[in-house]
Structures are given as structure tokens and as C-alpha cells.
């Protein structure tokens, strides 16, 4: 007879995971964004990545940043995840401003401002401010994409844009191999820790040396893996030329599961129109130029800077 036992403790309700780990971060398991075709989402990525190039007004780029954040929230992205980008976001700002303070350039039209013991110039500093928000707006376009698209979505989008199979395959395998490389790295580190290595107690110089030494086994594993994967590809009938059996066209089973719907076309066309309109009004009329910035105008008035 089989003995059974009960603990008397009620099991906690199972936690339903909200995010799925990808090789590039996390994406929500369910998101309203997923109703759009992967190619639409890729075009959205390009749209948000490129449109700030035409916009010099920090106010508009700041607004674009909030639009991105709004889409992320609507798309159920865990906003806390964005904290990992904070160091980069702050140090970009630091770098951009330090460069214009140290190397403002020489221009008689620049207005000097004394800030404590140092003299800064208004125009390059405001230029750096505007450039910073352009950059951040573009970066958030990228963050939005990687926070809401799995590797599979990227591949489907690339194949939908008729990229050769080998190109999308290389991109997919690259992303996956990045994950494998990290996994190998973790395994090597754990093996060292299991043997009593305490990296926290090490001096920075020794830590750097140690990290460098990890690269030797990591590269060796990559070499072996290249052999294994190429063998697996051969065994599955993959050829360098991409020729498929029967000499016909490759059926793309995964891509065939996705269909472009009306909402996709509406969004793609809308983004296209906004993009073209923005480019035209900026290139012909300079509507988004820095001199039209309300903040710039206000500061100039405040500081008594002419023009």
C-alpha cells in the first residue's frame, strides 16, 4: 500500500508569471501590442528610432519619450525593468555636458555665463541639452522594441520584409549564441565559486585579470559549438546556398502563422504619413528647429540673450 502524507499547510496560490524571459531581456506574456504583426512592430521601432532625427525641439522629443513610455505601459511592460538603463542615461548626459563645458568652441556669437568659478557658453550648452533629448527619445524607441518583442518576432519581421533566410538565420543564431555565451560564463563562474573563489574579496585589478582569463575557456567552448551546430545544420539538410529539397521555394512555416490585418496597415500607413510630414515640414520650413524651442526662447529672455 502506498503511504500518503498531508502537511496540513495550504499551498500558496500559484503565481502567474507576467513576463517572459528572452535572450535580450523580458517581454510581457500578454500585451495588447501583440495584436500587431511583428513587421508592424519593427516598423514602429524604426519610426521611433528615426523620427527624432528631424526634431531639434527638446519639448517635442520629451513628448516622444512620454509617448514611448505610454505605449510601454499600455503594452504591460514592467517599467521597473527600465532601471537598468539609468546608468547609461545619466552618464550620457554627464558626458555631453562635460564636453561642451570643456570644449565649447569659439564663436563670437556665443554668450558667456559665469557659473561659480567657471565660464560656460549658453548656445553650446542648450544645443547639448536639445541633442540629449533627441538621443534619449531615440533610445526609448529601441527600449520599447526590445521590451515587447521576442527573438521569434524579430525573425518573423525580417522574413516578412523578404530578407534572405540565411540573413535572418544568422541574426537569430547570433542572439541565441549571446545567450549561450552568457550561460557558459555563468557556469564557469559558478564552478569557480564552488571551489571557494570569492571575487568580492579580490582587488579590482585581480578581478579584471580574472574576467580576462574567463575568455579563454569561453572562446574554446564557442569553437566546439561552431562544429556542433554546423554538424546539426548539415544533418538537417541545410546547405550554404539555402537550396531546399526538390529545388522549390522554402516554405516559411513560422511566418505563415502571422497575417497582416487592417489594423497593421492603418498603423503602418499612419506612421509613414507622420514620418513624411515631419521630414517635409522640418526640411522645408524648419518648424522643429532649436530656435523655435519655447524653452530656448524663455531662457534667452530670462538671461537677456539677444536673438
Amino acid at each position: 500500500m502506498i503511504a500518503t502524507a498531508t502537511t496540513g499547510v495550504n499551498a500558496a496560490p500559484a503565481r502567474v508569471p507576467k513576463a517572459r524571459k528572452t535572450l535580450l531581456g523580458h517581454v510581457p506574456i500578454e500585451s495588447p501590442l501583440y495584436q500587431f504583426h511583428p513587421v508592424t512592430r519593427l516598423i514602429m521601432f524604426i519610426f521611433f528610432g528615426v523620427i527624432p532625427l528631424f526634431i531639434y525641439l527638446p519639448e517635442v522629443n520629451f513628448l516622444l519619450l512620454w509617448v514611448n513610455m505610454g505605449i510601454m505601459r499600455w503594452g504591460r511592460v514592467n517599467i521597473n525593468e527600465l532601471r537598468k538603463y539609468m546608468p547609461v542615461i545619466f552618464t550620457v548626459a554627464f558626458f555631453m555636458f562635460i564636453v561642451v563645458v570643456l570644449a565649447p568652441g569659439e564663436d563670437p556669437s556665443y554668450t558667456p555665463l559665469d557659473v561659480g568659478p567657471i565660464t560656460i557658453y549658453y548656445q553650446p550648452v542648450f544645443f547639448a541639452f536639445a541633442a540629449y533629448w533627441r538621443l534619449i527619445a531615440m533610445l526609448f524607441g529601441t527600449i520599447l522594441y526590445f521590451s515587447t518583442n521576442r527573438e521569434r518576432d524579430m525573425l518573423v519581421a525580417m522574413r516578412s520584409l523578404r530578407l534572405p533566410f540565411i540573413a535572418s538565420y544568422v541574426v537569430g543564431l547570433s542572439i541565441r549564441s549571446a545567450g549561450m555565451f552568457l550561460e557558459d560564463f555563468r557556469t564557469i563562474r559558478e564552478a569557480e565559486q564552488a571551489r571557494g573563489l570569492d571575487t568580492k574579496a579580490m582587488r579590482l585589478r585581480d578581478q579584471v585579470k580574472l574576467y580576462m582569463m574567463y575568455l579563454v575557456p569561453l572562446f574554446s567552448i564557442a569553437l566546439r559549438r561552431a562544429d556542433e551546430i554546423s554538424n546539426a545544420l548539415f544533418a538537417r539538410g541545410y546547405t550554404l546556398t539555402g537550396r531546399v529539397g526538390g529545388g522549390g521555394k522554402r516554405a516559411d512555416y513560422i511566418r505563415a502563422q502571422y497575417k497582416l490585418r487592417t489594423r497593421d496597415w492603418v498603423l503602418i500607413v499612419s506612421m509613414g504619413l507622420i514620418f513624411v510630414a515631419t521630414a517635409i515640414v522640418q526640411m522645408r520650413f524648419g518648424v522643429f528647429s532649436i530656435e523655435y524651442s519655447p524653452l530656448n526662447i524663455y531662457l534667452k529672455q530670462l538671461l537677456g540673450i539677444p536673438g
Partner: peptide, 23 residues
């Protein structure tokens, strides 16, 4: 050592696509 794709489903269909089969 023999996986070449992102999901199990893609893994399975990869070889079938190479054979030139229809959907």
C-alpha cells in the same frame, strides 16, 4: 549541440523546410 532555432516548434520545422515540403 543539435539545436539551431529559438523554439521547439521552429526546431522541428527547420529540417522540414529544408526538405522543401509544403505548409
Amino acid at each position: 549541440a543539435q539545436f539551431t532555432a529559438m523554439t521547439v516548434e521552429e526546431e522541428l520545422v527547420f529540417g522540414l523546410e529544408n526538405l522543401g515540403l509544403g505548409l
